[in-house]
Computed example of a mutant assay.
Amino acid sequence: MTVTTSNSPTTHYRLTAPAIPTTPRVAREAVAAWLWAAGHHGLLDTARTLVSDVVTNVVVHTRVPHLSVEAAVTRLGVTVSVWDGDQRGVPRSRRADADDTTGRGLYLVETLSHAWGVSWTGGAEPAGKRVWFELRAAREGT
């Protein structure tokens, strides 16, 4: 895990982990700890759910050896991104049927976040994609 602090009002965190079935749990608890430390207690449950869903998508739908979870925490909230080295496919939100056992993750991200999206990476950083979402505190420090 990398923590970068500066005189700016943003603290950056990064966790690099193997893309294995236990990683969603590790990632969601890491992000929850970062938010707890920043005093954003009101964002914990939503952040845990969304991180778990996005990281699970990488574990289930890609064949990459590792992934990275990054968070930029400010006094107003957090932007979380999950990077993987697979450029195939476009992650899309969809509404699952009532009897579907999967397919709700990105719909939850879309519904519960302030904003979300997908970016493709390359150039100076390794090629891949980054699924990100933003959560805003109801009040500063919540």
Results as ranks from 00 to 15, higher is better:
residue 47 A to N: 00
residue 27 A to C: 11
residue 88 R to Y: 04
residue 83 W to A: 11
residue 104 R to K: 13
residue 28 R to Q: 12
residue 22 T to E: 09
residue 18 P to G: 09
residue 119 S to Y: 09
residue 128 G to D: 08
residue 117 G to F: 03
residue 111 T to W: 05
residue 41 H to Y: 01
residue 100 D to F: 05
residue 64 V to S: 00
residue 51 V to N: 02
residue 94 R to D: 10
residue 47 A to Q: 01
residue 127 A to L: 02
residue 123 G to E: 12
residue 119 S to M: 15
residue 112 L to G: 06
residue 140 E to L: 14
residue 48 R to G: 08
residue 93 S to K: 12
residue 73 V to M: 10
residue 123 G to F: 04
residue 7 N to H: 08
residue 119 S to L: 14
residue 46 T to W: 04
residue 112 L to W: 09
residue 112 L to D: 01
residue 29 E to N: 12
residue 109 V to I: 08
residue 81 S to G: 13
residue 102 T to Y: 14
residue 48 R to F: 04
residue 45 D to E: 13
residue 70 E to Q: 09
residue 108 L to V: 09
residue 67 L to W: 02
residue 117 G to K: 06
residue 92 R to T: 15
residue 2 T to M: 08
residue 10 T to W: 12
residue 64 V to Y: 01
residue 81 S to I: 12
residue 54 V to T: 08
residue 110 E to L: 07
residue 11 T to H: 05
residue 6 S to V: 03
residue 103 G to I: 11
residue 60 V to R: 09
residue 137 A to G: 01
residue 91 P to V: 12
residue 6 S to Q: 04
residue 127 A to T: 07
residue 125 E to M: 15
residue 68 S to R: 07
residue 120 W to H: 13
residue 38 A to V: 07
residue 72 A to M: 03
residue 33 A to N: 05
residue 91 P to L: 11
residue 68 S to G: 06
residue 39 G to Q: 05
residue 35 L to P: 03
residue 125 E to P: 00
residue 84 D to R: 01
residue 108 L to K: 15
residue 9 P to T: 10
residue 90 V to L: 15
residue 107 Y to K: 11
residue 64 V to R: 02
residue 103 G to P: 12
residue 29 E to K: 05
residue 87 Q to T: 15
residue 116 W to Q: 04
residue 19 A to L: 06
residue 17 A to T: 14
residue 12 H to I: 13
residue 40 H to R: 04
